Simulated assay, not measured.
Amino acid sequence: MFDIKTELTTNPKEKPAPEELGFGHFFSDHMFILDYTDGVGWHDPRIVPYQPISLDPSAMIFHYGQSVFEGLKAYVTVDNDALLFRADQNFKRLNRSNERLCIPAIDEELALEGLKQLVTVDRDWIPNNPGTSLYIRPFIIATEPNLGVHPSKKYHFIIIMSPSGSYYKEGINPVKILVEEQFVRAVKGGTGEAKTGGNYASALKGQEIASREGYAQTLWLDGKENKYIEEVGSMNIFFKINGIVITPALNGSILPGITRDSMIQVLKFKGIPVEERQISIDEVVEAHQNGTLEEVFGTGTAAVISPVGELKYLDDKMSINKGEIGEISQMLYDTLTGLQYGSIDDTFGWTIRL
């Protein structure tokens, strides 16, 4: 259906040992590239050896930040197949980000086919130790050499892949989170619901403050009233209060996480009450004070679930579930990873086997 040219490397890299992997340090032998030129559209899909890219110093990405990206994974299943999890949703979300950043939409079917072929070419780069995976980073950058402030007329769409170690090497240990009081991650009407680099750059200051105080991540509040909960670090956030799982409703400044959506669907499938609505930090504090704050957890591609054992807001340190992973968090983690590694039957139709 698509004519994707493939150039195989003549100098394959030595693969790192599983214990050396970490996250984002090593890259597979090949990458997928698709170019955009105004008047031509997206063209020349190809798989080539992993290599540096050459850009003019005036390329618009360097000056006006026109870029979007995605993050997903490939897994080795229990029967040794390669598996992608909800990859079609990543490319749908990429196009929503494109719309916000004035980047031309990609053909989602072509992007998915390019990814499938790239994973097939670099199949041996998917680690198979427990908890490991091949992290996949599709991204688009503006490449037109021009200092005028307008949408670029040229772009690269590139997919690179990185073997990643187990996120939880010694079991899932709940983390400590600091509620940020001064800075905000994004505001409604801004780019918060797009997956673009600037959102992550603006979050670095809060992360720096949290780390300095001994906390793993920042809990972000809304940019208008500084009271409603939005995200935690680069993850979506969930609270179990009095038997009901609550997550902030998508409001234009919150990234619509694919893991978030997966969790909501699993909760509904299991018959567990779940609500998407506005939730304030004051409501969380009150629930902690009256004993109904039962679990807190973040969700995202890298960790799947990151349980929260402590929240600090102002001078109040809130211990959650005695600092242990909760029953719902464990169930969701087991279910999602079971689907991703093929040990649970996929009744949702979320996986692609290669």
Rank of each mutant, 00 (worst) to 15 (best):
M1A: 13
F2E: 12
T9P: 08
P16F: 04
A17Q: 15
G22P: 11
D29P: 03
H30N: 08
T37A: 08
D38N: 11
D44R: 10
I47D: 03
P57Y: 08
T77K: 05
N80C: 12
A82W: 02
L84P: 00
N90L: 04
K92N: 10
R96D: 15
N98T: 01
E99S: 14
L101S: 05
C102V: 08
L110F: 07
T120F: 10
R123Y: 13
T132Q: 12
R137W: 06
F139Y: 11
F139G: 07
A142I: 01
A142P: 00
T143V: 10
E144F: 04
V149A: 08
K154C: 11
I159L: 10
I160N: 03
S164F: 02
G165D: 07
K169Y: 03
E170C: 08
P174Y: 03
L178I: 01
K188Y: 05
A210D: 07
R212Q: 14
Y215W: 00
W220K: 02
G223K: 04
K227S: 12
F239W: 03
K240F: 06
I246E: 10
G252N: 09
R260N: 07
S262L: 07
I264M: 11
V274M: 07
E275G: 02
E275S: 14
E275M: 10
R277A: 04
Q278K: 11
I279Q: 00
I281K: 03
V285S: 09
A287F: 06
H288C: 04
H288T: 00
F297T: 00
V304M: 03
V304S: 04
E310W: 01
L311E: 01
L314A: 11
D315Y: 04
D316W: 15
I320Y: 00
K322G: 07
M331P: 01
G338N: 11
G338K: 12
G342M: 01
S343K: 14
